[in-house]
Design a protein around this nucleic acid. Structure first.
Lengths: 158, 158
DNA sequence: CAGAAGCTTCAGAGATAAATGAAAGTAGTT
DNA sequence: AACTACTTTCATTTATCTCTGAAGCTTCTG
C-alpha cells in the first residue's frame, strides 16, 4: 500500500522544486515530511531521524515554518516534546502574505517614476506600465485566493 | 527634471527585489537600466559603463534577457554594435512561461499521492489539496494575463 | 535540588552561485 | 589580408547560503 521509499523520493524531489522557488530547502523537507506522515504530527526528534538532519537544522526549519504559519506546535501535556502538524490554511495563506509585499514594490516604482521625471517620456511609460502590472497583481491575488476558497468549499462550481 | 542618482538608486533597489524573486541580479540591473534609459536602446558597452560591470557579466545578462524575451537586439546597420531595447510584451509573457512548469509539479504530486497509498487518508487528503491548489494556479494564471491584457487595452473597464 | 532530555543558538566547514578579467572569437574597415 | 572594435567564453576569485556539531538553556522527573 504505502511505499516509504517512494515517499522519501517524493519529499526530496518536491523539496528541490520548492527550493527553486526560494523556499529554504530544509524547511521544505520538513513541511513535506509532516504532510506525508501517517501520523497527524511529528516531533523534532522524529524529523531529525527521518531526514537524517541535525537538530539545529530542524530547529531553524521548524521556526521558519511556524512563523509563516504553515505548521503549528501541538503541545503534548505529559511530555517535554512538542509535536508539529500542518496548518489547514497552509497554501493560500502563505501565498497571501507574500503577495502583500507587492504594495511596497509599487511604491518603489513610483519613486523611480519621479526620478526619471514623470510618465510623459518613453521610460516614463515603460515604468508606469510596470507599476500598473504590479498593482494589478496586488489586487488580483486576494481575489484569486477567494476563488480558491470558494472552490474548496464547493468543488463542482457555483 | 531627471535625477540620475535617484535613477541609479531605483535600479539598484528594484534589482535587489527582483533577485529575491529568483531573477538573476545582473540581468535585473540590465533590464532596469534599459527600461529607465532616456535612449530607446543601449549598447553592451553603455551598460557595462553605467553599471560598472565587466563585459562578460553584461554578455551573460543580455543573453538571458533576450532568451526569455524581455529585451531584443536592435541591429545597427552601419556599426558592429548591437543595441538592446525592451520588448513591449515583457512582463506578462515572461510570467506566463514560468507558470507553465506548474503542470510538472502537479504530476509530481500525483506520484506522491500514489506513494502514500491514495487520497483516502489524512496525508492523502493533504497532498490532494496541494495538488488541487497547484492545478488551480496553473489554470488561473493564463486567465489573469488575459485580464491584464484586456485592461491594458481599455483601462476604464468593459 | 540534581539529573536527564530536548530545544535553541552559533561558529565554522562545505557547497553554490555571481561577477571578474583575460583570452579567444567574430565581423566590419582599410 | 591584416587591423580594429566589439562580443563571447571560461577559469578563477569572491560572496552567499546551508548544514553540521558542539555548547548553552530550559523544562520536566526523581
Amino acid at each position: 500500500m504505502r511505499d516509504e521509499e517512494a515517499v522519501r523520493q517524493f519529499v526530496e524531489r518536491m523539496s528541490r522544486q520548492m527550493a527553486e522557488w526560494n523556499f529554504p530547502p530544509m524547511a521544505a523537507r520538513v513541511l513535506l515530511t509532516v504532510m506525508t506522515a501517517e501520523e497527524d504530527a511529528l516531533s523534532a526528534a522524529d524529523l531529525s531521524e527521518r531526514l537524517d538532519a541535525s537538530s539545529g537544522a530542524i530547529s531553524g526549519a521548524v521556526r521558519h515554518l511556524t512563523t509563516i504559519g504553515m505548521i503549528h506546535r501541538v503541545p503534548v501535556p505529559g511530555s517535554r516534546r512538542d509535536l508539529y502538524g500542518i496548518s489547514d490554511d497552509t497554501w493560500w495563506e502563505a501565498t497571501l502574505t507574500k503577495g502583500n509585499r507587492l504594495q511596497l514594490v509599487v511604491e518603489a516604482i513610483e519613486e523611480g517614476l519621479t526620478a526619471i521625471g514623470g510618465p510623459d517620456t518613453r521610460p516614463g511609460r515603460t515604468l508606469a506600465e510596470m507599476r500598473d502590472f504590479m498593482a494589478f497583481c496586488h489586487e488580483e491575488i486576494p481575489l484569486l485566493l477567494d476563488k480558491w476558497r470558494a472552490r474548496r468549499r464547493d468543488p463542482v462550481g457555483p
